[in-house]
Design a protein around this nucleic acid. Sequence first.
DNA 1: CGCAACATATGTTTTTTGCATATACTGTCG
DNA 2: CGACAGTATATGCAAAAAACATATGTTGCG
Lengths: 138, 138
Amino acid sequence: MFFAYTVGMHARHARGTRCRRRVGAGRWAVRARVERFVEPAILLLLRERTLHGYELIDLLPELTGGERIDVGNLYRTLRALEDDGIVTSEWSASLPGPAKRTYELTGEGRRLLDLWAEALRESQSIVASFLKRHDERR
Amino acid sequence: MFFAYTVGMHARHARGTRCRRRVGAGRWAVRARVERFVEPAILLLLRERTLHGYELIDLLPELTGGERIDVGNLYRTLRALEDDGIVTSEWSASLPGPAKRTYELTGEGRRLLDLWAEALRESQSIVASFLKRHDERR
DNA sequence: CGCAACATATGTTTTTTGCATATACTGTCG
DNA sequence: CGACAGTATATGCAAAAAACATATGTTGCG
């Protein structure tokens, strides 16, 4: 079956599936990303204001360096966050357009965001010292 | 069956299996790591001198912030790197103790390391701007 | 009406990481 | 000498994370 409109297509623009992939004879493409980075990214956006899933899809690239998140996994992540008490959601019938689920950060979510920030700072210092060591003797 | 000596035990010291895990009521532990970070770490160590697997196990924590890598996966990674022409290995019967496979970085491996460094720098700037935004309005 | 855009969701596969187990050699201490 | 700790490499399998594919319904507009 053919779909004129496929959300998944948004997420595809010259990415590969792997972290490192061959792009020619002896040529590689590498990308370095933080594991599960979407989670803190979602939390940060939600701390600023309540949002629904589709808005997050548009806003997340601001934080991920332009990379679009997989839509299916976003909604799954949101529901997981809700199960864990990190966000709450509400169907907002009021807004125009199709039904939207609006997400809000809880107090626990705010604390989790701060933990993520701490962890990211540690990661920054680990990577920084890697880069320092890399640049030392070239 | 019980094993007095299990290499895997080295790798266990109060880690969880997940990136984020619950450690109490409303309490979480988070760790932020770069995907596949062991790879550049191995390459950096091998650029400095040739090493065998077991030495890498001891040296890698220097670069990963103390975290010990899973031994089984280390050897698998090394073989994958060799398949990709990034390292070469040699059985060194000369050295005392059990047979050791000594790994050396190839020219391609050196180039890949530089690509990793570039990618890590990009990741640093993404995370840095996340943290900036996080710290702005508290 | 037909179609594009909006919105949420599930199913499946691949990649990456974690954990358990297997095997073998070497040095040493009792 | 022999049990045992330490060194060294390896495979099998499970779980977590990410990518990819598909499904479904609403709304607005030409």
